[in-house]
Design a protein around this nucleic acid. Structure first.
Lengths: 203, 203, 203, 203
DNA sequence: CTCTAATCGAGACGGTACGTCGCGTCTTACG
DNA sequence: CGTAAGACGCGACGTACCGTCTCGATTAGAG
């Protein structure tokens, strides 16, 4: 967690805990209403019923607070899907992913459609890279880093799009998109060197 | 009026043209040095040798100037690739795309790696949607809009990544990624309904 | 007259004359609506139906235009009253003064109650000093200059006040104030002891 | 809120008090050097060693600061003279007035000859009207309001003139002008026949 | 159960950038 | 080819928000 801890011994002070909670809720509430960079620290404090200075006792910036809110969630999400994906069941991983987001739809709507999408993408990417670094690369093509980038950014885009739909696609369908469009092209076997790739797939 | 918009009939006033050009160049120069939101309107004006107020006679905001710079370029890029892609030659379209960007590497580095990536993605998306709206959808799955979003955002991510590499991949290779990872999953014929998709491609 | 003459040969150009007239009228109109320093040159030009640049062909500043409007009027006013006052008939001078202003009430209201009062006071003072300089001082006490200042500023204040009254005092009465309160203390020549003056002129 | 008004309860905050004092002093210093409307808010802040924004936390405008500076002084001045004048000793009131101004010559020079004369006249008039409203009118002629206006504006003119003289008149003399020319015509109570007043004090 | 020290709220402060307005100059296009 | 339109540089304004700081009130733990 990236937040600033004013005094180590007060980290579990009841008041401090309450303040932190209020700040997180305020951030989430405001994210449902306006874009991250339209939200001012003063807004957050007033929404949270917390003094302006107090904010800085806990976070050096808005982004830090957002990370505080988001990091846990993202870590959870990743922890939910990666193991399944590793076990080669991409379809099940996708379903788990969208199920989880659906169950916390309000939270994720705030995080992904409320103007924090870019920050979320970056945090997501950061965590994903950490995980990717610990694992052997099953494929050397495409290069690992661009794969991570494309998977993460596309996943975020898909989630964001899905959450914004008035009549969202059934989980089955969006998970299929996730699997077929986003993940599948990357995990496909290494049998097709680009230069031998047929120009038109179906020919 | 919020800002003074030069009259249409003076749009070809030599001074105004010169000023606009200076602003565009200044923006591009500054984008190579720092992120968009670190760039100050005053910075732009001083770089361009233009009065602060004059900026607002041409643009209501930095973003507007960036759009002005970017829209032409993006339109050009799209105009370069779409026709080829329509002609079913995705590989050639990719090569044309990366060739063009490579030939204007400095400009595109500024636009994509200088902190304006998000704005570029949005402008790109806007233009792409306009084009998509004019064309019949060859596939109804995945839904057209998410396809557009994923293609555009992934393309921007790939370009951005490619431009940032110290030793960039050869155009052939990056075009292959573009074709195989980004485009191909969307244009693939209806021969592989999701439910029949083998869970493990190589099995 | 203090205005800037762009081209000597155009001084009597019909168009130039028309423009000057339009500017003067616009100034007077605007003075009835707002204070002098709220009036912008652009306001004047638009009201006059004259190009912005054109203003500066005739006047270097708003104040110059105001002087142009006012100087003649003030000179006229002074020319009307001074001779009578010199002839020792202060009462008649006052009546003449207020009669003239009353006959041009609209103009003078603009000049004195429309926010140009200070400028008018200064212009009035300037002209009065010129006249005072040409005349022998009948009294050496109080010092001539402060007498001029007090008479001019008080006269302007009285006129301004009178013009702003919803139910203005009859000319007879205001002329009495002018005579008894403003002029008399300065020209006092012992012949009219103030205590014999009826407190209310008509009594 | 247009500008931030420090809360009443913080009115005695040491920092705020220090800032206000610095602003007042800066205003007075600058008034000795240039006209009020040549003085920039930035000038004031830099002279006071105060942040630009901070100015607006205390005053909505330069004029407001000037009033702040002036109101106390004017109130003091009025408080000094009115009681004596009420006690019918106009001469003593005048002497007290000019004595006080003389003792704070630097301050009053700034206020009256530094380009703030009009603002001072208005503030003076405002306060005088408040006082006049509380008192019975000894005379019904001339009308009370024009009397107040003439006395105030003439007093301000006289003070301003006096302070600008290279060789100022002795207090005795200027107080005589004040009494004979400005006050006497209004309070005329028959007891001090003007013709007995020495035309030149020393004669 | 008080007294002292920490911690909180409130917000004053210096600062940077913004977008606006008006001025007076200077260039340009048009009749 | 002169004149009216208006683009321009400039400087001041007033606002918003930032992050730091000072202050007074509240509270908690030590005596």
């Amino acid at each position: 967690m990236a937040h600033y801890r004013p005094h180590l011994k007060t980290a579990k002070d009841a008041r401090a805990v309450r303040t932190r909670e209020a700040l997180r809720n305020a951030m989430l509430l405001l994210l449902t209403q306006q874009s991250l960079d339209k939200i001012t620290i003063l807004d957050i404090c007033q929404t949270a019923g917390v003094g302006y200075t107090t904010f800085f006792r806990h976070h050096p910036s808005k982004e830090s607070l957002l990370d505080d809110v988001a990091a846990d969630e993202i870590a959870h999400l990743i922890g939910l899907t990666v193991p399944i994906a590793v076990a080669q069941d991409v379809r099940a991983a996708g379903v788990a992913l969208f199920n989880y987001v659906d169950e916390h739809r309000k939270l994720w709507s705030a995080l992904l459609t409320g103007g924090a999408q870019v920050a979320m993408r970056n945090e997501f990417l950061r965590l994903s890279r950490e995980i990717a670094a610990t694992r052997a690369h099953v494929n050397d093509w495409p290069p690992a880093d661009i794969s991570t980038i494309l998977v993460v950014s596309s996943t975020v885009e898909l989630l964001s799009w899905w959450l914004q739909q008035k009549k969202p696609l059934p989980i089955e369908e969006v998970a299929a998109i996730y699997e077929r469009i986003i993940i599948y092209p990357h995990v496909r076997g290494d049998r097709i060197p680009p230069e031998r790739t047929p120009r038109r797939p179906r020919s």
